[in-house]
Amino acid sequence: MNIDRIQTVVWVVLVVGLIARAVWVIRKYNDHRIKRYIGWHVDATGTFGKFYWKEGVFSSEVTRAMSPDYATRYRWLLSQRGQRTAVVLNVASWALSIFGALDLSWNLGFGDSFFSWWCVLLLFAYLLVRGSVRVIADAPDDLLDERQIALRNGSYRIAYFWLALIMFFAFGLMSGIGEAAGEAPSEPSSFTSDAFFFGGGLLLFIAAALPSMVLAWGGGVKER
């Protein structure tokens, strides 16, 4: 089965899924159907609640993640196994991202569709790990209690160390690849601009996901 065929099958499954969700939402709910369709939690007043610009979250999203109902519904994700699986999936998505970026530059044979699908996986893995720690790493102070604030702050301290380490190796890797390709990193070229564009984008994702990953791996928000 070639990559185009796989892509077609995935698109068909996706479209059928989206239609099925639309039918389910219309049949089940009488209000706020569009909001419910796109998956946002709708609070009692029918709004998303306050939006925290600095953290980039709605209060309803955090409130929902903190509720006992969320713990019951996503027990599989909040278990230590679920949390660590989410972390591993993130690391795997980063590795695939690097292969995807190299493929764009060197045409290693993964196919054009590979590039788009690792982007989806990257986003999915990021959302999964955020959910596994109940969005604590992204929540503002006034929606957390003192223990959760201490956990969040501690996770950022450790994540910062890992981010520094990853950036050190990432820039070393990009420079090394540039050298291997016979292109000096100091000279603008298609390869180096691609590498820095995608590498920079990936680093943003890593920076956003790392605090949640630290929390998830340490089991800091175990459901007990």
Binding site: R147, A150, L151, G154, S155, I158, V214, W217, G218, G219, G220, V221, K222
Partner: peptide
Amino acid sequence: MGMGRKPK
């Protein structure tokens, strides 16, 4: 606090 490191 379960951060994965032994506290002092």
